[in-house]
Design a protein around this nucleic acid. Structure first.
Lengths: 128, 128
DNA sequence: GTAACATTTCGTCAATTCGCGAAATGACAG
DNA sequence: CTGTCATTTCGCGAATTGACGAAATGTTAC
C-alpha cells in the first residue's frame, strides 16, 4: 500500500512521468488497450483489464524479452498515479487510472481567462 | 523564427516542460496572469498581455534580481510551445499559448474507452 | 521440495538536467 | 557613442535519469 497509489500525487510528477517519449508511448498504448471495467460472461466485474507487463514490453520494444527498462517506466507511471498494476497469477496486468487522468485534464482545461491583470501589483515593483 | 514556435512540438516535450516543479509554477503563474488578447483604451488589440521576465522571476523566487535559471525555464516552456515571449521595449513579456494548451487537453481528454481488447492479438504471442 | 516463468530490484555507466555566477547580447536614453 | 537596464547564453559542478545486464523476488506446475 505504500507505493501502489499515492494519496495525492503531485501534478509535476504526473507531467514528468508523461514527459519521456518511451513512457508516453507506454501510456498511450495502455490507454488504447485497457478497459476500466469489463463485465465477463460469468457476470463478474473485473476492475482492470489490460495487457501484461510482458505484452507492454513486446509492444513497445518489439522484442519478446521482458525489459527491465520498461518495468521501471511502468513503476514511475504507477508512482505518479497514472496507471495501476494488479497481479493475476504469474502476470501483472496494467491499467490506466482514469480518475487521475481526469484530474489532469481538469487542471489543464480550467484555465483562468487571465483577467486579473494586476496580479503582480502587490509584489514585484522592480521593473517599470 | 527558428526557435520561437516549433511547428508541431511533440507532446512528450510539452509534458516534460510541465514536469518540473519550478516550471509548473511558472506556467501556473502565467496562466493566471496572462490574457490572450487585451483591448486597450486606444482600441488597439495586443496579442499578448502578461508579465515581464523580471516579474516572473520576482514572483517565483521572491527576489527582485533576474535569475538565469528562470530564463532557461522560460526558454524550455517556449521551445515546448507552451508559452510565447514577445519583446516590448527593453522587456520581454510572457504569455501562454492557449492553442497548444487546448491541444494537450484534447489529447488527454480523448481517451479511447478501451474496448479494443484484442489490441495485442497480432503481435506479442509470447505470454499466456 | 525443484524447476520454469513473469517481473522487479540492483549496480553501473553515459547522458542529461538544475541552479548558479559571469559574461554577452539587445534595446533604449542621453 | 557610451552607459544602463533587461534578458539570454555560457561554463561549471552536483544531482538525476535512462538503458542495460545480472541477480533477486514472487507465482505456479510438477
Amino acid at each position: 500500500m505504500s507505493d501502489q497509489l499515492p494519496i495525492f500525487p503531485d501534478r509535476a510528477a504526473m507531467f514528468k512521468a508523461l514527459g519521456e517519449p518511451t513512457r508516453l508511448r507506454i501510456f498511450d498504448f495502455l490507454r488504447s488497450c485497457c478497459g476500466p471495467v469489463a463485465v465477463e460472461e460469468t457476470g463478474d466485474v473485473r476492475t482492470v483489464t489490460g495487457p501484461t507487463v510482458g505484452e507492454v514490453c513486446c509492444h513497445i520494444t518489439g522484442a519478446e524479452r521482458i525489459n527491465s527498462t520498461i518495468s521501471e517506466h511502468l513503476k514511475e507511471l504507477r508512482l505518479a498515479g497514472l496507471i495501476t498494476t494488479e497481479r493475476r497469477g504469474k502476470n501483472m496486468i496494467c491499467g490506466v487510472n482514469r480518475v487521475a487522468l481526469a484530474a489532469l485534464v481538469e487542471y489543464l482545461a480550467d484555465s483562468p481567462t487571465g483577467e486579473n491583470e494586476g496580479c503582480c501589483g502587490d509584489e514585484c515593483e522592480a521593473q517599470s
